[in-house]
Design a binder for these strands. Structure first.
Lengths: 128, 128
DNA sequence: GTTCATGCAAATCGTTTGCACAATG
DNA sequence: CATTGTGCAAACGATTTGCATGAAC
């Protein structure tokens, strides 16, 4: 079996993650990658995803489904999760650092970051 | 071995979770419960924790460590997570429903809830 | 021939579940 | 005797890891 060129392979994974805003899981990447690389092993997908994370090219995010999700949008932003269909969407409302100042005013903590997730129904699901 | 009275056992778990604000894991509950009930199985702890969750007496929360945490504070509140020691603390800053209105103004989503976590260093860890 | 990423399978970790049994009523 | 919660161990799903192999240089 021909060895896969290192950068080709990892680049394909990066392209895949970049191609969607659906915050895919390793399994989704694996399933899609198999169309191009039928012999790929899921362990290899995990390894390369973790390398991309450690290189800062993608981010790993955990939601409430005990499955890692990956996001090529590495900037600070908030998320919406549909409680019915499970869709995870980026939100365009501005990241608000003043929330961190508020916490620092009320506590002794040094705040570096925060995360804000909204739960509800997406356009489709709220109609049914 | 004498059968454990249903409410005694489950109540002990509830008491344990109520006794701390540290957002304990099932394993922590298990380890502490064994002092009083040395023969308890961890599966039983999980079963009872899940029953307490479904009864609305405690909440299950996932953070970034792929382990379920339980919280007897069932009211809406925000969390702080220390990036160094892993401590999870409740925050006293008010829950702000206007954040949900902001999202509804900018999107087509129907928002039911939100979650806000702050990351940084706790009083102890920020000194070292 | 050394390096390095792969496929594969086994291992690991947290959690859930099937089952036989003992206690309750 | 029907019900219910338990201990135990097996099962499970997501992720990681050890190892032999084959490609690249």
């Amino acid at each position: 079996m021909a060895r896969l060129n290192k950068s080709d392979f990892r680049d394909s994974i990066l392209e895949l993650v970049k191609s969607t805003e659906a915050h895919p899981t390793a399994r989704w990447v694996y399933d899609n990658l198999r169309e191009e690389y039928p012999s790929v092993a899921i362990g290899t997908v995990y390894r390369n995803l973790n390398i991309l994370v450690s290189e800062g090219l993608i981010k790993s995010i955990q939601f409430d489904d005990s499955t890692d999700h990956f996001d090529a949008n590495t900037g600070k932003h908030y998320h919406f999760i549909c409680e019915r269909c499970g869709a995870i969407r980026d939100l365009q409302i501005p990241f608000d650092p003043s929330l961190e100042h508020l916490v620092e005013k009320h506590t002794e903590y040094k705040i570096h970051n925060h995360r804000l997730d909204f739960y509800g129904l997406c356009e489709q699901c709220k109609r049914t």
